[in-house]
Design a protein around this nucleic acid. Structure first.
Length: 239
DNA sequence: CGAATTTGACCTGCGC
DNA sequence: GCGCAGGTCAAATTCG
C-alpha cells in the first residue's frame, strides 16, 4: 500500500500554489511536466495558472544553488544509481528531480500526514481540495498564514543550499513517519522566513522542503556569483 | 568563546 | 472539555 501511495506521489505532476496575497487568496493551478527545470519554473510566476511546456532544458545556472551542502564542498555528486533509479538524478545535474506544488488549503500542509490521515489519502489530496476548502470556508480564519511553497527533491542530504542561511530551531518526529521533521528559520534579522525539511514517509529518498514566508533580503553573500544568480532565479520562482 | 544544534517542555489548534 | 499532534521555545550541549 505504501508503495502504491509513493508511486502515486511520484507520478503526480500537478499541484496548487498559493499566490502572493497569502492564505486568503485564490489558488492558482499549474501542471509540471516530469522534465521540468528551474528556468521554466522561473516564469511560472508570470504565467500564473498555466501549463509549463514540457520541452524545457536544464538550467545550468540555477542548479548549483540546489546542490546539497555537503556535496558542494568537493563538487562530487552522487548520482541516482546509488538509489537504483534511472530517472531521478543528483541535484547538480538533475533533470526530473523536482516537483513543486503549493499549499492547497489554508490550514493543511501540502504534504503533511496531519491528524489521523496516516498518509494514506495523500494521493487523494487534490480531489479533497474542494471539500476541504468548503469546510474551511465555514470556519473563521484565526490567523493569516504566510505564503508557502513546498517541493520535493531526491537527495541524500536533508538541507539543500538555496542561497540563504538557515538556523535550525526545532525537530519533531511526525506521526507515521520514521524520519523527523526539521524546522529552520532564516538567520537574517527581520526576515521571518521559515522552512521545514522532512523525508517522504513512503520514499525516504525524497526530501520535502516547505518554505513559509518571503525573504526581505538577497541570498547570502558568501556564495559565488553563479550561485547568487541561481538563487535569485529560485527566489523568483517561489515569490 | 560565540554560534549552531539538540532536545525536552510547553503552547496551540483541531477533532471527537 | 479532553487528548492528540504539530509547531515553537529555550536551556543544554556540541562544534568550529
Amino acid at each position: 500500500m505504501a508503495s502504491t501511495t509513493s508511486q502515486a506521489m511520484l507520478n503526480q505532476q500537478q499541484g496548487l500554489f498559493e499566490n502572493e496575497e497569502g492564505s486568503n487568496a485564490q489558488m492558482g493551478f499549474f501542471s509540471i511536466p516530469p522534465n521540468l527545470n528551474f528556468s521554466s519554473l522561473g516564469s511560472l510566476k508570470a504565467f500564473g495558472s498555466s501549463s509549463i511546456p514540457s520541452s524545457t532544458n536544464l538550467s545550468e545556472t540555477l542548479l548549483p544553488s540546489l546542490t546539497p551542502l555537503k556535496h558542494r564542498e568537493d563538487h562530487s555528486i552522487t548520482t541516482s544509481s546509488d538509489f537504483g533509479g534511472s530517472q531521478l538524478l543528483s541535484l547538480q545535474r538533475s533533470t526530473a528531480n523536482l516537483w513543486a506544488w503549493g499549499e492547497v488549503s489554508d490550514d493543511h500542509e501540502c504534504l503533511s500526514s496531519k491528524r489521523s490521515n496516516g498518509g494514506d489519502d495523500r494521493h487523494h489530496h487534490h480531489m479533497a481540495v474542494s471539500a476541504m476548502k468548503m469546510k474551511k470556508m465555514k470556519a473563521i480564519r484565526r490567523k493569516v498564514r504566510e505564503p508557502r511553497f513546498c517541493f520535493k527533491t531526491m537527495s541524500e542530504v536533508d538541507v539543500l543550499d538555496d542561497g540563504y542561511k538557515w538556523r535550525k530551531y526545532g525537530q519533531k518526529v511526525v506521526k507515521n513517519t520514521q524520519h523527523p521533521r526539521s524546522y529552520y528559520r532564516c538567520t537574517m534579522d527581520n526576515c521571518r522566513v521559515k522552512k521545514r525539511v522532512e523525508r517522504l514517509a513512503e520514499d525516504p529518498r525524497m526530501v520535502i522542503t516547505t518554505y513559509e514566508g518571503r525573504h526581505v533580503h538577497s541570498p547570502s553573500h558568501d556564495l559565488d556569483q553563479d550561485s547568487q544568480q541561481a538563487s535569485s532565479h529560485l527566489n523568483n520562482f517561489f515569490w
